[in-house]
């Protein structure tokens, strides 16, 4: 089964600066891929390379098994069968919703298809409205419907949720995932929000400095980040020094099972969920604990993030459930409840 999108060795530079270099990527049919990375990492450029609004300096781009960009080839965007949803939706302000959706459709089968797609996107009955009469979430769905209507090989979404307010975001995300699933569409979306990427995508590709640092399923990415930078970017990460020998890590928090290749002096990463806290009143710490003082507490309702400073110095954060938790200034004992991941010392 050929991939919906394949990039091989793709590079794009602006003057002396390489926005994208040596990117290899594959998106299977029906898959949702997230391109995740900080600002300036090249993810939007990659998207635009797939869409055809930029031409690569190196490498090839294939869409639907067909080479659309490469040495000597550059097929213009309108011929690539790639749909795009822009950050600002880019709806045609002078056309109705139905006309917007119909724009990419050839004459004959228009009407029926438009209605089907509007239903799919939960926009029944809104066909006659003008874009400025709709709410932000509705506009976004129109943009998606419009991109989906012609049945493209892949739908590209550029930071699709950044224009929505936080409360709306979660709901709209879920809706979008359903719509894409119902349509059986292949999608690539770009975001700098790791929560979004992890929750929506089948696979996440983390981009940094113009190249792909790691591409994996969300759980793999979260629990087995390929590098320290990826680890820090995808979720909160705690780092403590230690020594690693045969799958065991010796550190201030005691002896902990660990995975990772490097041995000797290492930096060990522990996710906040892997730390457990116990109030330290009069008793001391046991062998596989360390003493710490709570610095701050962020309560989210369903969980909370406790920031604390170990007596030996490093600042860690721990994620606990929604219970009473600990207040700043309290003394706690910190222990490890999960395996650590080791990285070479920087």
């Amino acid at each position: 089964m050929s991939a919906a999108v394949r990039l091989q060795g793709v590079g794009r530079s602006y003057g002396p600066v390489a926005a994208v270099r040596d990117v290899d990527l594959e998106v299977g049919r029906g898959e949702v891929l997230a391109l995740l990375g900080p600002s300036g990492c090249g993810k939007t450029t990659t998207l635009r390379l797939i869409a055809g609004f930029e031409a690569p300096d190196a490498g090839t781009v294939e869409v639907g098994g067909r080479t659309v960009a490469g040495p000597g080839i550059n097929i213009p965007p309108e011929k690539r069968r790639v749909g795009m949803v822009f950050q600002d939706y880019a709806l045609f302000p002078h056309l109705t919703v139905a006309q917007n959706v119909a724009y990419g459709l050839p004459g004959a089968k228009r009407k029926g298809r438009v209605e089907d797609v509007l239903d799919l996107a939960h926009l029944e009955g809104l066909g006659g409205r003008m874009p400025h009469e709709l709410s932000g979430g509705q506009q976004q769905r129109v943009a998606l419907a419009r991109a989906l209507a012609p049945g493209p090989e892949v739908v590209l979404l550029d930071e699709p949720f950044s224009n929505l307010d936080a409360a709306l975001r979660v709901r709209v995300r879920a809706e979008m995932r359903d719509i894409l699933a119902d349509a059986g569409a292949t999608a690539v979306f770009v975001t700098h929000d790791q929560e979004e990427a992890l929750s929506l995508a089948d696979e996440v590709a983390v981009m940094m400095d113009g190249t792909i640092a790691q591409k994996a399923a969300p759980e793999v990415l979260y629990h087995n980040p390929a590098s320290r930078r990826v680890a820090e970017f995808v979720g909160e990460a705690n780092f403590i020094p230690g020594t690693h020998e045969n799958g065991r890590l010796s550190c201030v928090l005691g002896e902990v099972p660990a995975c990772g290749e490097c041995t000797g002096n290492v930096e060990a990463m522990l996710r906040p969920e892997a730390l457990r806290l116990r109030a330290l009143q009069n008793g001391g710490v046991t062998g596989d604990e360390a003493g710490a003082t709570v610095i701050s507490r962020e309560f989210y309702g369903h969980d909370q993030l406790i920031k604390l400073r170990l007596d030996s110095g490093p600042v860690l954060c721990s994620r606990l459930g929604g219970g009473p938790g600990f207040r700043p200034g309290e003394r706690v004992a910190v222990g490890v409840s999960g395996p650590a991941l080791v990285f070479p010392k920087p």
């Binding site: 869409a51 965007p77 011929k79 749909g83 795009m84 880019a90 724009y103 419009r146 012609p150």
Partner: peptide
């Protein structure tokens, strides 16, 4: 660009 992406 959206219009281009839609095949025009």
């Amino acid at each position: 660009e959206a219009a281009r992406g839609l095949g025009r």
